[in-house]
Design a binder for these strands. Sequence first.
DNA 1: TTCGTTGCAAAAGTTTTGCAACTTT
DNA 2: AAAGTTGCAAAACTTTTGCAACGAA
Lengths: 172, 172
Amino acid sequence: MIQDSHTDFSLGEVRVSMTPQERFDEYLQSKGKRTTSQRRVLVDHVFSRHEHFDADELIDQLNRKARGADRVSRATVYRALDELVEAGLLRKMSLGSRSVYEHDYGYPQHDHLHCTECDELIEFRSDELLALREAVARGYGFRVTGHRLTISGVCRACAEKRHRKISPLDLI
Amino acid sequence: MIQDSHTDFSLGEVRVSMTPQERFDEYLQSKGKRTTSQRRVLVDHVFSRHEHFDADELIDQLNRKARGADRVSRATVYRALDELVEAGLLRKMSLGSRSVYEHDYGYPQHDHLHCTECDELIEFRSDELLALREAVARGYGFRVTGHRLTISGVCRACAEKRHRKISPLDLI
DNA sequence: TTCGTTGCAAAAGTTTTGCAACTTT
DNA sequence: AAAGTTGCAAAACTTTTGCAACGAA
């Protein structure tokens, strides 16, 4: 996970010159905040996989992993997630009642297909969309800082599951 | 607000042949539900203006309007909002901690520019986006049912406000 | 009369916060 | 030592729900 900082570091596709840990430390320093074992454990865990997660899942995973000395409390997780978002390491989105987080640092800009049956999030990239958002914004004198597109529907797997359950005759 | 049902009814741009009230009644009937004074008051109020609103705002407005006999309780407002969404009259989105609602029935498909300073929502339409979403989905064998795009940034008014406060010299 | 509806208050679910004890710098 | 951080429990918020009284069909 942690590498010599002179080497480029790859998470997904974008190459960056610091590990998430290093980048977070930098953020903390710049804010007069401190590097603690809780923050280290949390960042390490969050960037060891590239899945979407919510606060509750993260809390569970951390508790299962480290029941001992460096447990991270619920409150601390929420506080750290806010910091990671502010530091630009994570992106937050609301997908249901809970907020969902995903990697931002070292990960390319993308949007999502959201399957409303199984809740899976499929990522996709579209440069056209970036052009479109600029074109729209220009028309309103709007200064864009970002966007979020979620296309909802049914993923291939769930569509197939349905077909197996519903006989073709039922569809007439 | 209420018109002869043989006349077309216009809310925004799309012409429909029933008032929201009529359409809601139809939905209620089809579900074996009943037309009550609370539901009438609520639908009437919601479709008397074309703004985005959340449950709390709506409850306040209704209480201010009708303090007397046909008050609508908090619980009933939440229950009715769910029904209006299911009936296709309203669309629900989560923009912060609260859910925000907007007209769906009789109103054209659109997306939003969201100003992060003043929270204003500016609506826009883009046919290109509809094409884009189909193209993307096709690539994943995904069956689209809808989408939501929110472009965030700073609206013209807020950008100007900033300029007035910050002298050009500060920007160097 | 039957059965859906309402209002209330309590409950639920997620996130935030006050505070005393504890760590990092 | 000074100042930020943690964990806990309580609080804050939004939304949902059980239930008895009420109202529509």
